[in-house]
């Protein structure tokens, strides 16, 4: 006896979205943000740091590289971020007591990130809703760090639509 039921026309899968018309955009910038993936915005290179690095060294790295944010990583997995905001809030006025402690003590743990497959708009909404200026990008396939989207990189992306696509 067969375990298969006879096929009838009513059993055939009907994709509810087969007649779906994707949204049409009049505005090129809005279309780009809605449809292009995060990878359309520059996210590399990024500066990484080991969680056991002393805070004084992390400060030197921020200043030396002239970046505002370091990704704290272990085997390319994101543990946190250490930014100039962390330096302001947790280190600046307490520098002598803090300088030799590991950066993991003052990093922002569990930072909000986006996957490289998310839309470009996702990065901007993370910045708007969560108030983070730097948004790490993580691979949706293996969870490893891909890079970071900074304010300058976002404004560069937006600005390109004002320079060439008016």
């Amino acid at each position: 006896m067969s375990s298969q039921l006879p096929k009838s026309s009513s059993d055939e899968f009907q994709d509810p979205l087969e007649n779906y018309d994707p949204k049409q955009y009049d505005d090129p910038l809005e279309e780009a943000l809605a449809t292009l993936p995060v990878s359309a915005i520059q996210s590399t290179p990024y500066a990484g740091i080991d969680p056991n690095t002393p805070i004084s060294e992390a400060i030197q790295r921020l200043a030396g590289l002239q970046v505002a944010c370091l990704l704290v990583e272990e085997q390319q997995k994101l543990l946190g971020v250490f930014s100039d905001r962390d330096a302001l809030d947790k280190v600046a006025l307490e520098y002598d007591e803090m300088k030799d402690r590991p950066v993991r003590d003052v990093m922002t743990s569990r930072p909000v990130f986006v996957y490289d497959s998310d839309s470009s708009a996702a990065v901007l909404t993370v910045m708007a809703v969560h108030g983070f200026r730097h948004v790490p990008v993580v691979s949706s396939s293996d969870g490893k760090i891909v890079g970071i989207v900074s304010p300058h990189r976002v404004t560069g992306f937006l600005q390109s639509y004002f320079e060439t696509k008016q």
């Binding site: 400060i59 030197q60 921020l62 200043a63 030396g64 505002a68 100039d84 905001r85 330096a87 302001l88 280190v91 600046a92 520098y95």
Partner: peptide, 9 residues
């Protein structure tokens, strides 16, 4: 804050 980081360094 970027200037502050430079000063601390």
């Amino acid at each position: 804050e970027s200037k502050l980081t430079q000063l601390l360094a």
